[in-house]
Design a protein around this nucleic acid. Structure first.
Lengths: 156, 156
DNA sequence: CATATCTCAGAGAGACTGAAATAG
DNA sequence: CCTATTTCAGTCACTCTGAGATAT
């Protein structure tokens, strides 16, 4: 029947961690739906965006920039290389490293994904006006920055 | 060497969906660490909190309240019942349903988890002051409410 | 010897789907 | 006949750990 409210208990509705997780789930869903039409996953976008902003870097550096685990980077880089979106070459100056470079096709794919991400973020924050969206990005950004700093080199 | 900044690319740093996902990961980690000491998982907390706030309800209603899938509810209810934290009985008025009730032991466990959640949220939002925390809860709450409303009965 | 990088193998929870059995 | 509930089997991406091989 379920004529009831179906509201979450206030213990959850007021918990920042629960709310953030829930919001993350919705963001996740929207991104996955949008990216599936471009045969991409979230990690792909992170890597392509980092390569475009920072230029060719090692896989380890990619992982630090994107908050991705070393083992996941290996997988994603393999997939992107198979698709011709990036090139992976050994670093002549440090034989342990792979230097990853984005290809023209990768750049075009990033352009497509950028547009999708923009649409998704708009849909994700639909109930908020411009000022509220900026406030949310600022607040959540500070939280992320804080926790990223506790375990890495810190950014910003 | 990695003397570099290791900042995320601005495409990510400015993306609400990426930021929310990252924040969710940190929240997730903190909750898991805290709950592992109490032999609990996040779903357990949601269910115990809902039962305490709403009283005995069916599993389907629990799922709607907590944003949990029907099949996951079945699993969690089974685990909680095995641990003696809830009781599960067929509804005499509707034989399809299980009416789930929290036990005294379940209430005590909820008390423990409430304290852990409170600590976790404090740590999670460490870089924000009181007013900023309330603003974040309000903004993210509205986002969650919006997306929950698009696919269910809506709350609030 | 200690540290850093890449790779693979896999664990484990989380979110979700499909289908069957039962009851309204 | 159609819908709702519970349950099971299983998928899939995601996060993360451990270990090995190699290089600095």
């Amino acid at each position: 029947m379920a004529t009831t409210d179906d509201a979450p208990p206030s213990a959850l509705r007021r918990s920042p961690s629960w709310l953030t997780n829930q919001a993350g789930i919705y963001a996740h869903r929207l991104v996955n739906e949008a990216f599936s039409s471009a045969n991409a996953r979230r990690y792909h976008y992170s890597v392509l965006a980092a390569l475009t902003e920072f230029g060719p870097v090692s896989q380890a550096a990619l992982g630090r920039h994107c908050h991705l685990d070393r083992s996941d980077i290996a997988g994603v880089v393999g997939e992107l290389a198979d698709a011709g979106l990036i090139a992976r070459e050994p670093d002549p100056r440090d034989q342990r490293r792979n230097i990853v470079t984005i290809t023209p096709a990768g750049g075009r794919q990033l352009g497509r994904l950028d547009a999708l991400v923009s649409q998704v973020n708009d849909e994700f924050l639909a109930p908020l006006n411009k000022a509220e969206r900026e406030r949310l990005v600022s607040l959540v950004g500070r939280v992320v920055e804080h926790h990223a700093g506790l375990q890495g080199t810190g950014w910003a």
